[in-house]
Design a protein around this nucleic acid. Structure first.
Lengths: 138, 138
DNA sequence: ACACAATTACACTGGTCTGTGTAATAATGT
DNA sequence: ACATTATTACACAGACCAGTGTAATTGTGT
């Protein structure tokens, strides 16, 4: 009820993806239910096939199963398999055009999370490679 | 090289967690390597025990294994098991104090991602419940 | 040196997941 | 109707994973 403004973190001055603070002050520990839901959320993203599918669909607004299968170099069955998991969670939706069934992303949050994760990975690589200005404290 | 400035997204005006656009224009499709790394990243988060551990550690800067085990209501072995996975990925680090070994989070990105995911879940629930202002386009 | 506590190492078991192969379903064109 | 294409349904096999139980390791105090 009226969960309006929770913008208590106005210092979002990160040039990269990662924040500088590790703690989460003022939050309550994760409930079992929340942890389980989070697990499901991350689990659906913890598969390279589904990640590629989502990324493909995020780039091209709509794609049918066979095109996605071609793009990934996989068999339609396997692709359909994973697409259905994504569909079950309401992440993607379908639209039929003749014989083909076109999939599209409807859950913007997932893509945002994916986008963020990509950014974090890029950060991690940058840090691991050259930017050792802060990481050189052995 | 010199992957310096990639701050081409200045329109971060989201009140909630979710962006309004689904597509990711201007990006290249996910490479196999990137997809695999992303999978690993999400896989490490796709477990309620590890999520609770990370959240506990993010709330209290440092905790030893037995305290974490008590907090989760689990056996030390199981907790140590998961802590080691987190340690292998460089997400947490240890510090010995007498008999006890204290764990702490060192990968801020993971916590940031976790924080974001929690926010997204909250958004999803809000949307599912009452806030149907934009979702009512059937 | 010895008993004790905290943590980890290791083998093991039950469960889950992914891609495959085959068959079924749905729509198209002749 | 029939053949064809696209997609899905389903059972299955291999791999991976989480928690358990036991044993080993490490540090403490006497």
């Amino acid at each position: 009820m009226s969960t309006a403004n929770t913008n208590s973190e106005a210092n979002d001055e990160h040039q990269s993806c990662c924040p500088l603070e590790v703690t989460l002050p003022g939050e309550t520990p994760l409930t079992d239910k929340a942890a389980s839901e989070l697990e499901d959320l991350f689990k659906i993203l913890a598969n390279d096939t589904r990640l590629k599918l989502l990324h493909n669909l995020a780039l091209a607004r709509e794609m049918c199963v066979c095109d996605l299968a071609d793009s990934l170099g996989m068999k339609p069955q396997a692709v359909s398999n994973q697409l259905q998991r994504l569909s079950d969670r309401g992440i993607v939706a379908t639209r039929r055009v003749g014989n083909n069934i076109y999939y599209r992303v409807v859950d913007t949050c997932i893509i945002d999370l994916l986008h963020k994760a990509v950014c974090l990975l890029r950060d991690a690589e940058d840090t691991r490679e050259g930017v050792v200005s802060l990481a050189s404290l052995k």
